[in-house]
Amino acid sequence: MKLLLVEDEPALRAVLLESLRPGGYVVEVAADFAQAYEKIKLYRYDCVLLDLTLPDGNGLDLVRALKADNSPAGVLIFTARDTLEDRIAGLDLGADDYLVKPFHLSELNARLRAIIRRRQFQGQHHIVFRDLLVWPDQAEVLVRGEPLTLTRKEYDLLLYLLANPDRVLTKEAIAEHLCGDAVDAADSFDFIYTHFKNLRKKLQEKGADNYIRTMYGVGYKLSSE
């Protein structure tokens, strides 16, 4: 899985790179428009993570270039909060999804997974994690072959966890993932707790114990051990 990360801010680029690495991606980076343009013209990527505000050009032009070349690459754009127009323009041009800066890295992972899944790269029709088998197309979850019935929110939560295995997920990130980022995270911590409790119980009943670990005062983690 080859990704191109286009981000002009060095510190942010570094931390994004670091967070993407455990996902098993091959990530190339471009620091500005010129570099990025050259790379998308020369190489093929499965997904391009693109900051729209670049010092030497508009990221939207890169989306245009990709679409003009009929590139199969998925496009995930990063936009500033106050540029709704850019966001809409990006999606209209054919970007798959957008993230508003600053975003949660775990959210980035989840969105990236979703894009890849939608585009069905490398025949990734299902997700396997320990005893879990998930068929996202059918929204079906199996624990050791036995179907697990989940509510919509619990299923969303599980997919989110599966996109971030062995990663500490903060309460804020989880809350915003489930309620949309317009919601003040602090309002919904109780609600996360309830959903985790239920999901855990359901997994436990099927014998999938200790999958979800509570990180005291921080959040939750899907543990592969």
């Binding site: 801010e9 510190a11 931390v15 994004l16 670091e18 967070s19 890295l105 005062g217 921080v218 959040g219």
Partner: peptide
């Protein structure tokens, strides 16, 4: 802010945090 937030989130992933139970909640806050 974006850099701070991303780096803090990465910091939360450090295995070393598990040694000190007080550190992770501080970072989370």
């Amino acid at each position: 802010l974006a850099i701070m937030q991303a780096q803090l989130e990465q910091l939360l992933q450090l295995p070393a945090l598990e040694q000190d139970p007080a550190a992770a909640p501080l970072l989370a806050e």
